[in-house]
């Protein structure tokens, strides 16, 4: 359906914006390495089904490879910055101080409690879905600490947030058209979108009106 397509396109756009930002500007100011590492973990644990060869569609498979590949590539580009632009790297590390153990632990526990089946594949899938819902927190934390961000960085975060937000009408659509109700995805999707709500508000008030992102 249209919402699902738009959501996936928005997700793709966010990654393209991020890659272009890092490659063109050759600096990583305002981008959280921790959030990017969490995304590598999210995609690697979510798409383990690639190994079972039980593919749903060519579209899904290509997207899965794309998300795993680009998330690893982003981390590599950011690590490269240590040599090519050490000032920018140091500055990023200085601000990227969110303790991700407070996300990983609870997500692992939640995956053990809430899952569709107690198998390795399903536990990893559930872990990834919980972790994705909070993976942006180090990035948002960094943003709130520095109080401002480059316009491109805010476009990246917006596109990334929009992706999960668009999955919500997609789930409503699927509930009516296929009678399908994936409770875990829906709950974590709502949680994820809620975490972005504050950011969305500021993005709407400032960036969309051409004023640049700055926190009050």
């Amino acid at each position: 359906n249209i919402f699902r397509i738009l959501a996936d396109l928005s997700h793709l756009a966010s990654i393209v914006i991020l890659l272009e930002t890092i490659r063109k500007a050759r600096q990583i100011d305002g981008i959280s390495l921790k959030t990017q590492i969490l995304y590598v973990l999210v995609f690697c644990t979510r798409y383990l089904d690639l190994l079972t060869f039980r593919w749903t569609s060519l579209y899904n498979t290509l997207m899965k490879f794309f998300f795993i590949g680009t998330s690893v590539y982003v981390v590599k580009l950011m690590q490269d910055c240590k040599l090519t632009n050490p000032v920018s790297y140091k500055d990023m590390m200085f601000r990227d101080t969110f303790q991700i153990k407070y996300l990983l632990g609870p997500c692992a526990l939640l995956a053990l409690v809430f899952n569709y089946k107690f198998t390795v594949l399903e536990l990893c899938w559930s872990f990834s879905i919980w972790l994705e819902s909070v993976a942006i927190l180090p990035q948002l934390f960094m943003l709130s600490r520095s109080g401002k961000a480059s316009t491109l960085t805010t476009h990246y975060i917006f596109a990334l947030g929009l992706y999960r937000a668009l999955y919500i009408p997609n789930w409503i659509w699927r509930y009516y058209s296929e009678n399908r109700l994936e409770k875990l995805s829906i709950f974590t999707g709502l949680l994820q979108t809620a975490l972005y709500s504050d950011f969305f508000y500021i993005y709407y008030r400032k960036v969309m009106k051409g004023r640049g992102f700055e926190l009050p």
């Binding site: 699902r4 997700h11 089904d49 039980r54 749903t56 569609s57 899904n60 998300f67 089946k117 899938w125």
Partner: peptide
Amino acid sequence: KEEEVEHDEL
């Protein structure tokens, strides 16, 4: 045969 959980979303 055991039922598989289908995840067709990304």
